[in-house]
């Protein structure tokens, strides 16, 4: 593993001072499940200085606010979210999505903030190829084996898919995140937080968090009456893997009429892919199994699959159909 030095700040201000001191050579260290692999494979983005924010003790909580929404601290472990009774009662779909992330041991270690801001899991980047993210000028995924974790919806420079499952689920729930920046607190929607491959601080990354900013909290608004949601995910082995495709659906129902809809696909593009055409199609219709069968025809019409990953589009459409069927029959 690369040689590292670790800071242990006790406040967010201290952590920001340490991050600012080293620039992009330092990184926030929380669960470490993603970071340690970057260090072990000695990637170019592997930092030499880690800022361990686990000693900051007010970042690990799940609590209900006055309006009935829920605030989740960025350092909350995924296992804690999966076992939380409060979240299971209010947002069963989020708990379902988090339970499908990775393996039980990794859920014990990894945090919600780390899951939102994780680096992509392209085999070329993780294997140390000099791609765009790793100091080179080429995307090996676009020209090489792209059958698993590469975008089927086009890309800018990096074609790797955004691997997280929490982000699509949280977009469906209309969640926001809070960042601590040197110039004060900042609030972003999840869509603004992970807009796909972006050049930030001279590096390509999936999220917009700068080197001296720290994600502190995820805020989920109170659940509305008549809101139904589902999360579907396909994985090569059935457990542990990242999503080949995932579909998180959120429907605002009055009786069985759909008033508002959220359709977010994960694992098919460089960002959680919100499909507005299906949302528009669903609005005003009556929820039924027939509608579930019709909906995929409108989905992902602007897909641009690479050589080996056209199946991702079929998977995403199938997940959309099965998700709507589940909502219609339950």
């Amino acid at each position: 593993m690369k040689k590292i030095s670790v800071y242990r700040p006790t406040t967010i201000e201290e952590a920001q001072q340490m991050l600012s001191m080293h620039g992009t050579d330092a990184a926030v260290y929380a669960g470490g499940t993603d970071l340690l692999i970057r260090l072990k494979n000695r990637l170019k983005q592997a930092p030499a200085y880690l800022v361990d924010i686990k000693k900051i003790n007010n970042l690990r909580y799940i609590k209900e606010d006055a309006q009935g929404g829920v605030q989740i601290g960025a350092l909350t472990k995924l296992a804690e979210i999966a076992e939380s009774d409060l979240l299971a009662k209010k947002y069963p779909m989020l708990v379902q999505a988090v339970k499908m992330i990775s393996s039980p041991e990794l859920r014990n270690a990894s945090t919600l903030g780390g899951d939102l801001l994780q680096e992509v899991w392209c085999q070329y980047l993780r294997g140390g190829y000099a791609c765009w993210r790793n100091g080179g000028y080429i995307c090996y995924g676009a020209i090489g084996d792209n059958s698993y974790y590469h975008s089927a919806m086009g890309g800018r420079l990096c074609y790797a898919v955004y691997p997280g499952d929490a982000a699509p689920a949280l977009i469906t729930l209309d969640a926001k995140v809070k960042l601590a920046t040197p110039s004060g607190a900042k609030e972003l929607t999840i869509e603004q937080l992970v807009p796909g491959d972006m050049m930030v601080d001279g590096r390509i990354q999936s999220h917009v968090v700068r080197f001296n900013e720290i994600l502190t909290e995820v805020v989920i608004p109170p659940p509305k009456a008549g809101f139904r949601a589902s999360f579907e995910k396909l994985r090569p082995r059935g457990v542990w893997d990242f999503a080949m495709a995932s579909a998180s659906l959120g429907l605002q129902l009055r009786d069985r009429t759909i008033e508002d809809a959220r359709v977010v696909f994960g694992g098919i593009a460089g960002r959680p892919w919100r499909e507005k055409s299906v949302e528009d199609f669903l609005k005003g219709k009556t929820l039924s199994t027939d509608l579930a069968a019709q909906a995929p025809t409108n989905a992902l019409s602007n897909a641009a699959p690479l050589k080996y990953n056209a199946t991702k589009i079929d998977m995403a459409k199938g997940l959309l159909m099965s998700g709507l069927e589940k909502l219609a029959t339950s």
């Binding site: 470490g32 499940t33 340690l36 692999i37 072990k40 296992a79 393996s103 039980p104 041991e105 990794l106 014990n108 270690a109």
Partner: peptide, 20 residues
């Protein structure tokens, strides 16, 4: 690389990958 599980140990009763 946290991909097999052979190295698991319990820390305070919770399983973790010790290599990771």
């Amino acid at each position: 690389r946290a991909s097999c599980g052979a190295c698991s140990v319990l820390i305070d009763g919770t399983p973790f990958y010790s290599c990771h």
